[in-house]
C-alpha cells in the first residue's frame, strides 16, 4: 500500500448485487484489489477466496501465556520467593490459584488478540488509511481494481455488466 496506486472502483447499492458482481469477477478471472462494505457481508469471504482468519490461534497462544504467567507466577511467589502460611493451608494451594489463573487467561487473550487485530490490519490510534469513498461506511458496497492490473476499459465493461451504480478512479498512496 505504500507506493502510489491508481484505483478504479465501482459502487453498488446492495450486498446481493455486490456478491453477484464478485462472483462474476472471479468467473472472468479479473483480479480484485479489495472489496469494501459498510457492514460484514456474509458469504463474501468464500467467493472472494479469503482464508479464515487465524486470529483465534493467536488468541489461544496469548491465553495460554496468561495461564502460565498466573499459575507459575503464584507458584513461584508462594513456594520459593516468599512462602507464607495462610490459615494452615499448604504453600502450594492450587484451588485458590484458579480464579486468578482464569482471569489472567482471559485478560492476556483479549488484550493480545485486540492488539494483534489492529497491527495486522494496519490500524491504530492516529493512523489514517486511504479509503476510497465516504459512502462506503454508509450505504455503498465497493469493488476496487488496481489499474496496473486491470485496464480501465475492462473495468468499465465489468461494472456496467454487473450493474454498478457509479464508477470512479482515485489515486491513493
Amino acid at each position: 500500500m505504500a507506493n502510489h496506486k491508481e484505483v478504479i472502483y465501482g459502487l453498488y447499492n446492495d450486498e446481493t448485487e455486490l456478491l453477484r458482481a464478485v462472483k462474476a469477477a472471479k468467473n472472468q478471472h479479473i483480479e480484485i484489489m479489495d472489496v469494501y462494505s459498510p457492514f460484514p457481508v456474509h458469504g463474501l469471504d468464500p467467493i472472494l477466496g479469503l482464508e479464515e482468519s487465524r486470529l483465534h490461534i493467536a488468541g489461544f497462544v496469548y491465553g495460554m501465556l496468561g495461564t502460565l504467567t498466573a499459575f507459575l507466577g503464584m507458584t513461584w511467589i508462594f513456594t520459593k520467593d516468599w512462602p507464607v502460611i495462610f490459615g494452615g493451608k499448604p504453600y502450594w494451594s492450587v484451588p485458590a490459584f484458579i480464579p486468578i489463573t482464569f482471569e489472567l487467561t482471559v485478560l492476556f487473550a483479549s488484550i493480545g488478540m485486540v492488539v494483534t487485530f489492529y497491527i495486522v490490519s494496519g490500524m491504530g490510534p492516529g493512523i489514517t488509511n486511504n479509503y476510497l469513498d465516504d459512502r462506503i461506511t454508509d450505504d455503498k458496497f465497493c469493488i476496487a481494481f488496481d489499474k496496473s492490473e486491470v485496464s480501465e476499459s475492462d473495468a468499465q465493461a465489468f461494472f456496467q455488466s454487473t450493474g454498478a451504480a457509479e464508477v470512479n478512479v482515485k489515486h491513493i498512496n
Binding site: 472489496v35 457492514f39 463474501l44 482468519s53 486470529l55 490490519s121 490500524m123 489514517t128
Partner: peptide, 13 residues
Amino acid sequence: FGWTGSAKHWQRW
C-alpha cells in the same frame, strides 16, 4: 483507527 471497511478487516473484526 484508520478503518476502511475492507473485506479482510471485516472478517477479522
